[in-house]
Design a protein around this nucleic acid. Sequence first.
DNA 1: CGGGATATTGACTCTTATCAATGCCCGTGG
DNA 2: CCACGGGCATTGATAAGAGTCAATATCCCG
Lengths: 227, 227
Amino acid sequence: MLTPSAVTQAPHLHRLFNIPPGRKAEASEHATQAGVPMSFGRNAEIYAEGETSGYVYKVVSGVVRVSKLLPDGRRQISAFHMSGEMFGFEANELHHASAEAVVPVKVIAFKWEGVLTMDRQPVNFVREILNLTMLGLRHTQDHLLLLGRKNALERLAAFLLDMNARMGGTPVLDLAMPRHDIADYLGLTLETVSRMFAELKELGMIRLESARRVHLIDKARLKAMGA
Amino acid sequence: MLTPSAVTQAPHLHRLFNIPPGRKAEASEHATQAGVPMSFGRNAEIYAEGETSGYVYKVVSGVVRVSKLLPDGRRQISAFHMSGEMFGFEANELHHASAEAVVPVKVIAFKWEGVLTMDRQPVNFVREILNLTMLGLRHTQDHLLLLGRKNALERLAAFLLDMNARMGGTPVLDLAMPRHDIADYLGLTLETVSRMFAELKELGMIRLESARRVHLIDKARLKAMGA
DNA sequence: CGGGATATTGACTCTTATCAATGCCCGTGG
DNA sequence: CCACGGGCATTGATAAGAGTCAATATCCCG
């Protein structure tokens, strides 16, 4: 459940996607291969659902949320992406979800064209991207199980463990996102999320230093709970 | 929501994956490129979670369900695959979900090795598989929205429309799977699924010729409902 | 130090789950 | 050909979990 994530780092991609040392990079035509650094403020939109999608992104710092909206405003966040991870892969030329900065974010944007069309890149390269996409698919399938079959407490436990694993596994966890975002990721309301935090605290499994700073006191029991 | 599906057909793959005319094919070592036809009875296991995964599959006939289980038996079906679709893509060498035949199924199995390692295949080929995987990711993300944010009636409406679209769009829909499978796909209980069928009937949007044979009377309203 | 956004807590409602009884359909065998 | 039996589906009564609405409380940030 909630494995390291979607678009996690892969050695090859790190090499291939990193900006050449000394590069300055504005959004110039030349940026095709190297990638263009971009910054986004808190809650700024990186791309929108329905927008034409020409780029894939790698998170340099901050946290990104990818989400879909129903016409009446109900929202489902499908993933949070943290430093080192990539997102924005799309089958067609249109974005099927939107991406926003949860906190101030730096990313590098790569022309998708350049990624797939480059006939000079080793076949390994496309294969590497395929692998990232398959990992993303796996994470999403795990999340289906969470949304379809786990109760509120199990969902929150799984979420905290996933976040923790992805941030290095230290027992103190700093959450970048507000309760509302956690709720929209876990398919709950923010009130329920808050109550589940309280219950995990009651159960002695976590300690809340503040709303965003969580101490994972008993990971073993959290794991048993998150499934 | 619930787009044509996961691993839907793509012209290139049809060419590349089809068995050479006149081929007989047992599970021989030579079958690497051509693919091995296989048959499975109702509810037979095609592969299991945790099993080592050496093949990808293309459905020739029947319907396949891909699912994950929680230790206590709760189940989430992540997708149904129908004729022409492919499934079984895995990031690592282990299957992360299991696949079973909903009804008697014929598939063709292709060695994954052969698919990725073949340096003689055009780069286009890997790219085609990447595209199928991205489509699968999209379908799964749509399903996240369904599980996280839609109510029971909306879920069933979306399900019926998706199935209908994938089976050619005729107003009479033959469901291959029992209520229990629909429930595990939609994150509901079979009783609730049954009640929602009754309610769609009440609303005049469907007619039940039998439990498995559904007439879609008002697709427009179903669409509005399914979101 | 004050104020707005974010989070918690409480009371109550509503949707869906659970438990249980009955009905229906279809294939098999008398 | 009909009756029986077993799996599947429907329907009902009740319970439980999460949602909703509303009133504080807390935390930043200026």
